[in-house]
Design a protein around this nucleic acid. Sequence first.
DNA 1: ACGCTCACG
DNA 2: ACGTACGTGAGCGTC
Length: 877
Amino acid sequence: MSKFVLIDGHSILNRAFYGVPIFTNSEGLHTNAVFGFLNIMFKIIDSKQPDYMAVAFDVHQPTFRHEMFKDYKGTRKPMMEELREQVPVIKELLQKMNITTVELPGYEADDVIGTLSKKGEKAGMEVDVISGDRDLLQLASDHITICIPKTKKGQTTVEEYNTEGVRKLYKVTPTEFIDVKALMGDSSDNIPGVPGIGEKGATAIISQFGSIENAYDHADEISNTRNRNALLNNYEMAQMSKTLATINIQSPVEVTPEQCKLEDIYTEDALEMIKRLEFKSMIQRFGSVTSTNDCEGGFKYINNPFDADPIFEQAKNAENVGIFIYRNKDNFGVSLCFNNGNVYYIGKEGFVTEDYIIEKVRDLVNAKAKLTILNIKENNDILGNDDVESIFDISIAAYLLNPLQNTYDYDDIAREYLGMNVPAFDEIFPKTKKSETPSDEIPENILKYACYNAYVAYKAKDALTEKLKETEMLDIYNNVEIPLTYALYDMEQAGIMVAGDKLKEYGERLKTGIDALEKDIYAEAGHEFNINSPKQLGEILFGEMQLPGGKKTKTGYSTSASVLEKLEPDYPFVSKILEYRQLAKLKSTYADGLAVYIGKDNRIHGKFNQTITATGRISSTEPNLQNIPVRMPLGREIRKVFIPKEGCVFIDADYSQIELRILAHMSDDKNLIDAYNHSKDIHAATASLVFHVPLEEVTKEQRSNAKAVNFGIVYGISSFGLSNDLSISRKEAEQYIKDYFISYPGIKNYLDNSVKKAKEKGYSVTMFGRRRPIPELTSGNFMQRQFGERVAMNSPIQGSAADIMKIAMINVAKELKEKDLKSKIVLQVHDELLIEAYENEVEQVKDILKRNMEQAAHLNVPLDVDVQVGNNWDEAH
DNA sequence: ACGCTCACG
DNA sequence: ACGTACGTGAGCGTC
């Protein structure tokens, strides 16, 4: 079936304008919105592969009534000049790309889209409408999908709605959605709506009656009196709103869907213009015009040493060698791409054995060949390297440049930094899991996959290096992230020993407890049910048993611990559920969950990921060793099964309040710095200042409240969050915060400045120059923007702490190696390092840990590290 | 695939 | 008027 894509021009341009930092070309022409628009459009063309396409624009340039810009429609605040000047540019470019643009005097773009989409559907096309606006949802049908690109954490994801999608979200059909909108109104579209009826009321009424008219005729059946009266008193207003809200699907558009046939869009004219706009990363898309693709077809399969040897030799002296190591259970090979433009895949076959390939790769490493690879850590078993100078890691570079991406595969990097669309793993190996490419895989596919990987690595190195320089992150790349990769590799290799039999026993103990609780709970409830199902549990507690505390989540009742804890005093039976939950969690996630990862060496070799978090922390998976219980005694028991090997002990070192100390340093607040220099107990000192009591008279409660405030500050305080945490009123929480900022004026100043700077630049920065983009700061949504502000306050602090720990780890690992000690880092838990230390090395290791961790950074307050020794993780912590 | 819940810093 | 503390990962149930 043919695919017809319709783009809401102004809406997408507007989104692009706010989603892309403002910039100009060297002529001074603003181009950011055009750039963003093209990115979105290319993404759509790649993913939807449309046969037909058109872009609709509103005819009238917006009129300007107010100083401040709000949105692109003329009825509202005016469009910013920087955006307005880009409208003709994108139109011209689209024309040069032979893409149909449509505008109709007297009608809105919505009407054009509505009309064309329905015509397309009638002609048997599959229609996709691309818009940032929810208004268009009324057009959805079984063959018309409304696609709304969303920027989530800097990533654009697309929400798609057909009839079913709209029904799921709003509980009404797309046509009924018009009535919903008419009732609730939309200030941004100048639809008045019915005063007193909001989104909730509107959906309730329309899902019951189907239309405003029908609801009016049966007004006596509207159960909510407020809604009923609102409708009765404003019926005319509602009808007028409906007219305004309805998109005209019979506007006199002249072009037919068939005339929107998508021809070659990568024309000479368009390329010319792309060059003038200076969208360098997009030039490659027009490759077919300028030159043939310099990579595809240049893939060469090599299966004998006579051909392979000289290739490895050439690679030794090349300026840059993209390399990829392919392996699955039966295949093995290495692909290389360097100066001469060819990409070679040397695969295991005949005389080319696995050992031969490994030896040749090691030769390259030892010869200090300038290798570029997607991921050093995953390949270091073969690279066998700890020379941090010679190998470039493109995934780590890409992560530093934008830590918000979900993946850093070669295809992502090609798209982002080379403006190229290369086939991804899933496209080359359809419906195959990455970990297990089948042994009978077609050799051409392996060749293609391996060569694209090496090619992208080769190509991307310079682009990434350049960007790292531009963003002043080359230093943190070279001196923190890359050395860390090797430290993490060693840590993963080391693994941690776990007493499997003890873990099993622990699980059995939990099982006994769970069974008993289960019986009690069934007895109280009167029948059996799945306690693990929040849905069933909610229905039983709040439905059948009629406990107070109504709905909270979208899907039903909330049964979270915080809700249940409030019920506990009045309904002791609820504690059984809480206790059950606790035991069930411990059993499934930890007792049973960890057991499957214990290897033949009695150790767990978890993964420590370096390209996941937004702030720069590392993350832990398969299993997660960074969330092993510690707060509750029963959970803490698990830590006793983590043990050092024979002849070793554990040494645990953790930073004391590193984030607050960083806050003291970065804010340069005199009082907080003084508090750290004079008091051991920072929370008590804070309590004393905030509550105006002498230090000695601070009560336990005051101290713990002050502690909560301290945490809150680091998280980007909000009165709501604090009030929730402390179970106090928002008013009280507000007062606490006020008093806190009076006590520490430097902190207030610093946090305000963090937000201000982040808004100016679009990202926040740590002490060591690590950046985190915060796209939420420019969101039109108040809540999102507030989230962005909290992130702007928290990220530099959390991120700097992460940087410091990374530096410490590198230095600890380095000194252990230099001194030829056999002790090894086995775990990192954000502010804690666990070392498996040989008994005769204990004193030395303690010193190495404390010294390197405390000296990892020089702040204007001391960094304090607690070091403890024990025979299991619990004892050492 | 996604939401809920809960474990950690 | 609205719904929030920051950063993660895993297991489970539900769709």
